[in-house]
Design a protein around this nucleic acid. Structure first.
Lengths: 200, 200
DNA sequence: CCGCATCCATGACATGTGTCATGCCGGTAG
DNA sequence: CTACCGGCATGACACATGTCATGGATGCGG
């Protein structure tokens, strides 16, 4: 019997997957969690064989949960996401995830992936994996990513500079190089593009 | 037998809901569609009793699909969405939707809502309905909304002015009043807030 | 050691952005 | 009719933003 923990902030898909997985004779859904923090504490208590984690969750996202769990437990983590981009896959695998499944795939495949991962194997969505090989790695430096992350919510250059302890001119310069690298004209477009590609 | 059409761009939740609904003895899932345009043409061909439509879909969103179908068919539409805000509910009901269900609700409720709607009733998520009564209507004028919509993808004032056939100064003025009404400092924050509240 | 490349940081300059005062138009109350 | 109000449009002004040239710090290969 494979003991599975489910975490997804969207109640409808969480309960739907739970109901479907309970129909499988060899799978036992032992917990359903609505956010990352809850997933971590529940996993540490119940020690499930497999954790099926949504990437986008409040407080801790799926990648962060995977990192934490891999330090302390033998649980195998599968990350599920709507935004299946090569950059996201890279982050997921770097965190130690054993599986990666975009939500564009059918729900039927979930049980198969869980069995494979529980048996010690790995599963990565073949389509995304192919994209990842045709390397779409972020051309941005660490600092540039910092600045872009800070710019996500429409803060002004001055505010960003203060939170990063920089001169305003430096922030502007980083933004400028980012705009050049991404071939866009405004920081807002840069943010949208970077989010799209899973770089921030 | 209630004949149901399902439309959601996320394959996993679409197939999961379909599988669960097929377990119900009185519900027949006659079609699964991945986008709004496909939903419209399929619905016109199959004339299902109830359409379960995701709000966020490519090409045509759930509200637009509902509008189109209500012109030509007797189909009852239920709109499902992750971003369940009063403004979204208002738009959905204005389009003629018979039901409104946020994805934060459990999948169990879907079948019940479908039965209720098929019987000629209406269903609106009580929590969101309560919020909608404590009126959070948009304080923005039509023109201001036009400008804000155009500003969504980080376009410059000049580009927005050209697409709306306005002087750049006018666009800036509209943006300025929007910033005042929403009590934010940049157009980017205004866009994020308006999206959050379902006003654009 | 010495280039050389890369990242980070900064300040001067042009351009775009937000604020303000103003005027036009259609609807409404007196 | 007149006065007034709200939405729409516009141009002048202060400020933030994007571009550029520059310099310091670190790491790598000759």
């Amino acid at each position: 019997m494979i003991r599975v923990l489910l975490a997804d902030d969207e109640g409808m898909i969480r309960s739907a997957l739970a109901a479907l997985l309970r129909l499988e004779p060899d799978i036992d859904v032992v917990a359903e969690c609505a956010d990352g923090a809850e997933a971590v504490t529940t996993a540490e208590r119940l020690k499930p064989d497999v954790c099926l984690l949504d990437l986008e969750m409040p407080h801790l996202d799926g990648v962060q949960v995977t990192e934490k769990l891999n330090r302390t437990l033998a649980t195998r983590c599968v990350i599920v996401t709507r935004h299946a981009r090569p950059g996201v896959l890279r982050r997921a695998l770097a965190s130690g995830a054993a599986g990666f499944l975009p939500k564009s795939r059918s729900a039927d495949e979930v049980a198969a992936v869980i069995r494979r991962v529980a048996a010690g194997g790995r599963y990565v969505d073949p389509e995304i994996a192919a994209d990842a090989l045709s390397d779409e790695r972020s051309p941005l430096t660490d600092r540039e990513l910092d600045v872009l992350r800070a710019a996500r919510h429409g803060q002004t250059t001055g505010q960003i500079a203060r939170t990063l302890s920089l001169a305003p001119g430096t922030v502007r310069n980083h933004i400028s190089t980012v705009l050049g690298k991404l071939a866009v004209g405004t920081r807002q477009q840069a943010v949208l593009l970077a989010e799209e590609r899973g770089w921030i």
